[in-house]
Design a protein around this nucleic acid. Structure first.
Length: 726
DNA sequence: AGCACGCCGACT
DNA sequence: GTCGGCGTGCTC
């Protein structure tokens, strides 16, 4: 008789004890247990001699679901660390780390995958007979080449076409058992590879020198400098040793082209984990990776939990990308988790970016990570020139300065495309004088106030002090005080009226939602179907716009004067990424930044000296202001129908931490978005110069916080190392 | 989280 | 009289 400690999918920061009639059950095995009135599937997390519960009242395990653990020791350690570090319920963490199929208790052996294939009559069918049904024709044509996974066929051709062809008995379903062989080592076929330049060769040999141990590398290379080639040549060595490579990419970066590049170079199957997979397909990749049947696995954030039998290398591409941080539930950072995993697996980790996050850069500068730089730009890449446009006293039309409108007109007339960019990320409205550019700052913190229209107040997000919104500028007495901010729709309409002869298109996460919609939009842009592009964040990621010769960034000030101290960093990353993606060698682009503060040192540093110089300066500023990565933060957020409840709850938390030295408390203050879906949102920021002090303090208080009266009445969350303050 | 229990108002 | 609203509390 043994007592097992089981992780259950329950939002409680604890394990639950059960009796087990057998001798041992390894950690990582799934079990079915009864929990109150219901049945749950949990994961054995350990054994114990004594229970804090009355042993006679313990229930028994009802069923054991796995012969072998579904988590290896490294993943178990990783989950425990996650729960500990992010102060998150362990059962929830374990749940997040499992494919959905396994959460539901299905066998860890993947079921056969369902395909569509051509029937005998379909194989020889004449395509022209379907000329009036283009979807059906396209599907049949595709299937005559090779079978298609059902879910993919449905996504690409629709259910109607499938149904029609089934009724005509031209196609039929077929099941294929997942392959058991792990022959990728024999199949490995290295395609001709370009000769690495000197910098690439140095980077590759640095990584190769450490293939059998932990080491973290920052591969810091400007756009077009050939980071991928470095990955590929490092991967080659790992695969040749019979080891696996796990590659994380941003949500938007997992395109067929990316995958194809890896597939093509090595001639082997690549496991892909993205949001479009169904549960069984996901389980199959998971399973094949766990058995080392796949040499390369590429996936987004959650792929960091994919088990590997023979781990050899971890890569996080575009490591600065915000999609690596989960923004709800378990708020983990996949890049940080990758560091932990590489250390536990004792394998190297490569973080790649043209615009490294300041946290990462700091780790490279202090020698914690090895800094590999690529400065040389490959052949036909181009970089847009960057300029600042002073909009003080300039008449603005729908957010665009008159001078800029004229320039837009010139570019359009030359047959080029123009991109207008609205930066919403980290945006916080500051009160700017349109006459002289003066921005009112908090006297105590020397930080710009943030405008809160709901409360009709200016509020400092650093010390929490507030004052009412002034009527005129302190410096020039002008009444033209604006809290900048342009609406996408307003801009789109304005441009359509001003340039009626040109077609405009808006690309944001709303308009790009849906299968292939973004791809279709990007294609129509590069076919010159639209001349004016209006976009947000989504445009800056991974896509090239060779016909765009003018990029205009509208609300730079919203980031420069933001209460979110990361806004300037994100803006710089955006500008740098965009500059590398517009125009081409023979038709280079120009980029203009509209601002009330053309002399802003960060802005000037960025456009004159480039991202890496900017980043070092920004780091210095962070150090002087006692901000991350030189201090460590945790953010409590609360939302409720009554602002009072949210405030009181956070106030009670603040009191729990108030007596500690080494720990600063800011708030409770309204969140940057103070009201959403009718709920008031407040926040409380904890900050400490020592990570351990912050960890310890929260660890000691979290149980207490859970049991606060208001904790069950309102919605609240804790975000360790917060990235986003909206 | 989910599910039961319990205590109040508005229905046949 | 009971059906059902959702506040409270517990689950090894």
């Amino acid at each position: 008789m043994t007592i097992l400690r089981v992780a259950l999918p329950i939002p409680k920061r604890q394990l639950f004890d059960y009796l087990y009639q057998g001798n041992e059950l390894a950690a990582g095995v799934r079990v079915r247990v009864s929990f109150g009135p219901r049945k749950l599937i949990g994961v054995v997390w350990g054994t114990t001699e004594t229970s804090e519960w009355d042993i006679s009242k313990l229930k028994s395990i009802e069923a054991v679901l796995d012969d072998a653990p579904i988590f290896d020791p490294v993943l178990i350690k990783l989950c425990s660390w996650l729960a500990q570090y992010y102060k998150h319920p362990i059962g929830d963490v374990v749940q997040t780390a499992m494919p959905v199929a396994l959460r539901k208790g299905e066998s860890s052996q993947a079921k056969p995958i369902e395909y569509w294939t051509v029937s005998d009559s379909g194989r020889s069918a004449d395509l022209s007979s379907l000329s009036r049904a283009p979807k059906q024709r396209a599907l049949l044509e595709a299937l005559q080449k090779h079978d298609l996974v059902k879910s993919k066929a449905k996504a690409d051709f629709g259910t109607a076409a499938i149904k029609a062809l089934t009724e005509k008995t031209l196609i039929e379903p077929i099941e294929k058992a997942p392959s058991k062989k792990s022959t990728w080592q024999q199949d490995l076929l290295i395609q001709d590879k370009p000769t690495a330049n000197v910098e690439q060769a140095i980077a590759i040999s640095c990584i190769e020198a450490k293939l059998d141990q932990y080491g973290c590398f920052l591969l810091d290379g400007i756009t077009g400098s050939g980071k991928t080639e470095v990955y590929l040549q490092a991967i080659e060595q790992v695969l040749k040793q019979g080891k696996q490579v796990l590659i994380l990419v941003p949500e938007i970066g997992l395109t067929p082209q990316t995958v194809h590049r890896f597939k093509y170079r090595f001639g082997i199957d690549v496991g892909i984990l993205h949001s479009g997979l169904n549960n069984n397909e996901r389980l199959q990749v998971w399973q094949q990776s766990a058995n080392a049947q796949l040499g390369i696995i590429i996936g987004t954030r959650s792929a960091i939990f994919t088990p590997m039998l023979k781990p050899g290398l971890l890569i996080v591409d575009e490591e600065h990308d915000s999609s690596y941080k989960q923004q709800d539930g378990l708020r983990y950072h996949a890049r940080d988790l990758a560091v932990m995993r590489a250390r536990e697996e004792n394998i190297p980790l490569v973080l790649g970016s043209a615009t490294p996050a300041l946290e990462t850069l700091n780790n490279a500068l202090t020698g914690k990570y090895q800094h590999l730089k690529l400065h040389q730009r490959a052949g036909n890449a181009s970089l847009a020139t960057q300029h600042v446009f002073d909009i003080r006293q300039q008449p603005l039309k729908f957010g665009v300065a008159q001078g800029m409108l004229e320039r837009i007109g010139q570019h359009l007339q030359q047959g080029s495309q123009v991109m207008l960019f609205i930066n919403r990320r980290g945006y916080a409205p500051a009160l700017v004088c349109h006459q002289c550019g003066f921005v009112e700052h908090c006297k105590r913190c020397d930080k710009p106030f943030t405008v809160h229209k709901q409360l009709y107040k200016l509020q400092c997000h650093h010390c929490g002090s507030a004052k009412s919104i002034p009527k005129s500028c302190q410096q020039c007495q002008s009444n033209e005080l604006t809290s900048m901010g342009v609406g996408t729709e307003q801009l789109e309409q304005g441009l359509a009226d001003y340039f009626p002869q040109y077609s405009s298109i808006r690309i944001d996460s709303d308009s790009a939602r849906g299968k292939n919609k973004l791809d279709n939009m990007l294609n129509s842009i590069n076919n010159n179907e639209h001349q004016i592009l209006i976009g947000t964040q989504i445009l800056s990621k991974g896509h090239h716009f060779p016909n765009v010769t003018l990029v205009l960034i509208l609300d730079v000030d919203g980031a420069l004067f933001s209460a979110d101290y990361r806004a300037a960093e994100h803006l710089a990353q955006l500008i740098t990424q965009l500059a590398g993606r517009a125009g081409r060698a023979e038709k280079p682009g120009e980029m203009w930044l509209q601002t009330h503060d053309p002399g802003h040192p960060l802005l000037q540093d960025l456009i004159n000296n480039g991202y890496s110089h900017f980043a070092q300066y920004a780091l210095l500023e962070r150090q002087q202001a006692n901000l991350p990565p030189f201090t460590f933060q945790a953010l409590f957020k609360a939302q409720a129908l009554s602002a009072r409840d949210a405030f009181d709850f956070l106030q009670q938390i603040a009191q729990l931490f108030s007596h500690l030295d080494n720990l600063d408390c800011v708030g409770p203050i309204p969140a940057l978005m103070e009201k959403r879906q009718g709920q008031f949102r407040m926040q409380l920021l904890l900050q400490s110069p020592q990570r351990s002090a912050l960890q310890k303090a929260i660890g000691q208080q979290i149980k207490q916080i859970e049991t606060l009266n208001l904790a069950n009445k309102i919605r609240w969350s804790l975000d360790i190392d917060p990235q986003d303050f909206t």
